[in-house]
């Protein structure tokens, strides 16, 4: 009993002393000259700033790709699982969808992102093969619309900075140059094949890889931003479809679980070749394909 009391009083004294120390320090800071503790020097790591800048641009949810118009099957999933069993809450059901959607994105699209990043010379074949692997028109439309939007953003906005035709800044990195050339060649092929049913389409995943390469991101960042942008789009759709509130969506987006899940998916499919890319969640194809059957829709997929 006395021992407990003694510990308590000692703890109280320690706390009291700490508060007094902080107060004294604060008063010392006010009376002393501001130059007594110099600020750390401004970092001048230019390459780091350049890639971070590109990274921030590409991960911005205001990047005009129109991603907000697609729920990637969430809307259809909710409609197909209605009414929910009493044991399942809407949020739990959403978490299942997010897990499935990220797994499917990793196994089906991520190999194309990485293949285009690693070797952008054959963007047209990658585009054709991804078109051949996309099983339904709904998903095809969504991917093509976002891919072409990305191409538009690159050509109209980013290219003048990251691949200037004239000026002091010249792209010297051969990898970046190959990315820039690949996107330009692909854009040309796209214009020539507007009426060819089997011509270039402009799917999102391979173009994302090539544009990220052209803007100097590393492979890991390219993959991570691709996955987190997908998660953001699904979560944003969930908010608008009244599955959860905006704070809850942000907390899911910030959560360690989501980070781990994205990292796990990237690690798993890091070496998957495009020939081995495939659907791991077969019902997702059904939900996305049956989006057309919904009586009322607020999204395009």
């Amino acid at each position: 009993m006395t021992a407990d009391h003694e510990t308590y009083s000692l703890q109280k004294e320690v706390l009291d002393l700490e508060v007094r120390l902080q107060n004294a320090k604060a008063r010392l800071g006010q009376v002393s000259t501001p130059h007594s503790e110099p600020e750390p020097p401004l970092p001048s790591d230019i390459p780091f700033i350049t890639t971070s800048h590109a990274l921030l641009l590409l991960s911005d949810s205001a990047l005009p790709l129109g991603s907000f118009a697609y729920s990637s099957g969430l809307e259809s999933y909710v409609a197909h699982n209605k009414p929910l069993p009493l044991t399942t809450t809407p949020v739990a059901s959403f978490h299942r969808f997010l897990r499935l959607s990220l797994a499917s994105m990793g196994s089906l699209s991520l190999p194309y992102v990485l293949a285009a990043y690693r070797d952008p010379t054959d963007l047209e074949t990658l585009d054709n093969d991804l078109d051949a692997s996309t099983p339904c028109p709904v998903a095809q439309r969504a991917s093509i619309a976002q891919g072409r939007a990305l191409l538009g953003v690159w050509e109209r906005a980013f290219r003048s900075t990251y691949a200037p035709r004239s000026g002091d800044y010249v792209v010297t990195d051969p990898r970046e140059q190959s990315g820039i050339k690949a996107v330009a060649d692909f854009s040309e092929a796209l214009k020539c094949s507007m009426d060819d049913v089997l011509g270039a389409k402009g799917h999102f995943a391979p173009l994302w890889g090539a544009v990220c390469l052209a803007m100097g991101l590393d492979a890991r960042q390219t993959a991570y931003v691709f996955m987190i942008n997908h998660a953001k789009a699904v979560l944003s759709a969930a908010v608008r479809a009244s599955v959860m509130g905006p704070y809850q969506a942000q907390s899911v987006l910030a959560s360690k679980d989501l980070q781990d899940m994205i990292t796990e998916r990237i690690d798993r499919d890091w070496h998957t070749s495009v020939e081995d890319a495939g659907q791991v969640v077969p019902p997702l194809d059904l939900w996305v394909g049956r989006h057309e059957l919904l009586y009322s829709r607020i999204f395009n997929s």
């Binding site: 996309t134 099983p135 339904c136 028109p137 049913v197 077969p282 194809d285 059904l286 394909g289």
Partner: peptide, 18 residues
């Protein structure tokens, strides 16, 4: 049976079911 059927490319029709 949950199914989809759609023209995918060049006259190919893909039917998926569960």
């Amino acid at each position: 049976v949950t199914f989809t059927a759609a023209h995918v490319r060049a006259g190919c029709v893909l039917v998926k079911f569960g």
